[in-house]
Design a binder for these strands. Structure first.
Lengths: 243, 243
DNA sequence: CATAAACCATGACGTAACGTCAGGGTCAAG
DNA sequence: CTTGACCCTGACGTTACGTCATGGTTTATG
């Protein structure tokens, strides 16, 4: 069990970065002390290694999370593609070195911009991401959201958030999350997601429910729109519904 | 003469990036058409090449500007150090590749974090920047600003901006930038800079004056604090003073 | 010659991945 | 029991652009 500072030194990342990764749910420490100090275990370090490899390849943190949290995450295959990408990057650097040498000897040349072209790397990156993103839910989401505008998406999101308001009032009134009303509302949410986003099976919904109550982005968004405690209440209702 | 789009395609940078580089004064196109369209010449392309090389090395744009606008800019020496840095980067990537291979074969290892250590690169980068920044003005600035707090610097900046207010009123009243009052005020600014920042020779001051009137950051900051037209008026006054 | 398609401009707002205080607990050592 | 080295959570700042919104310009085409 290592503290933030220790991990920071070991892995050459800033303490702020570790706190940030915790906040966005990319790397949560295995446990906390009574005082709230973060303590990282071996698993966390392994995960951090994966994260840093992706970061070197300039993957956005959101994508990194999606990839390594994917249930279909295949470590060896991902590593193979990471190696491939690293090799492409090495070639890119080598191109830049020869360019710099050329400029030094022959002066700047108008034709010497091809070394800055990253389309090969970008292509491979895109294909790799696609190959990792091909889960059925993702496919479906792509299809359903294909024809939507920015405004459509916002309206849909607002509508979904609206479905949480009853949870907010129920929470304020101290109702039971296992009550029929709460259960019905939970089913409504599940149906809405299935209709507009992707087929929301009980299993997927259960996982989603846990995310609602976990104190992350979901929690704060929902509570901002539907009142304090709405997200946690919803999480409990969903748990009760599916167990 | 190439348009933004053409340069964008040639050099694999976005049009937005070119507009941004123009705005911050990093890469201003050689000319504009009557309609205001940017037109880039050969010099601009050579400069862009330099910029992109630095960008690959993750230099902040401000530093890039400082380096290539430095009167003591030595192209060959800079290229040598860029090549050195690129080679360090290649080694770094190679370290990551062997790490990824190791993980693939033997699983994640706690000791496998040294590949993420960039201190060698950082050290070399720091030394290179120092070697480029060692102009007399810079040294002096370092010394004079050594003991200042954040608040001190803000106060000083405000005071300097205050010296531009007379220019603002003069501009509003349609006065002549070559008048004695304007000249005196310009000398006051020069003296203030010499005292609190760095010895502001006539030559340096002339260059600074041009920057005031060039429509960049200087211009907008001054005009915001001292009234519309103050910066341009100051630029003319300085020009008149020194010619 | 008009009109659509493709390009250009500025301005304003948004974003990612942190850096950097500010304000305040914790804990081992002397 | 205090001091210095850590830790915490906000909250605001920064860099290097992406992304509209809104509107002028140029050129290929019917």
């Amino acid at each position: 069990m290592l503290t933030v500072h220790e991990v920071s030194e070991l892995a050459s990342v800033s303490v702020r970065t570790l706190r940030y990764y915790d906040k966005i749910g990319l790397l949560r420490p295995a446990m906390r002390t009574d005082a709230g100090y973060r303590l990282y275990g071996d698993e966390d370090l392994a995960r951090l290694q994966q994260i840093l490899l992706f970061r070197e390849l300039e993957f956005p943190l959101k994508d990194i999370r999606r990839i390594i949290d994917d249930p279909a995450f295949d470590r060896t295959r991902v590593l193979d593609q990471q190696i491939e990408l690293l090799e492409l990057r090495r070639e890119h650097i080598e191109g830049l070195i020869t360019l710099a040498r050329d400029i030094k000897e022959k002066g700047a040349t108008t034709m010497g911009f091809s070394a800055f072209d990253t389309s090969k790397i970008d292509d491979y990156t895109r294909r790799a991401k696609e190959s990792w993103g091909r889960t059925p839910e993702w496919e479906e989401y792509e299809v359903k959201s294909a024809g939507r505008t920015h405004a459509d998406n916002k309206a849909l999101g607002d509508e979904l958030l609206g479905l949480f308001k009853p949870f907010g009032t129920m929470a304020a009134e101290g109702m039971d999350p296992a009550s029929a009303d709460a259960q019905a509302q939970a089913r409504a949410v599940q149906a809405f997601i299935s209709e507009h986003y992707y087929t929301c099976s009980d299993e997927v919904f259960a996982q989603l429910g846990r995310a609602y109550g976990s104190g992350g982005e979901f929690t704060s968004n929902i509570n901002a729109a539907a009142g304090e405690g709405a997200a946690e209440f919803a999480a409990h209702a969903i748990e009760a519904l599916l167990s």
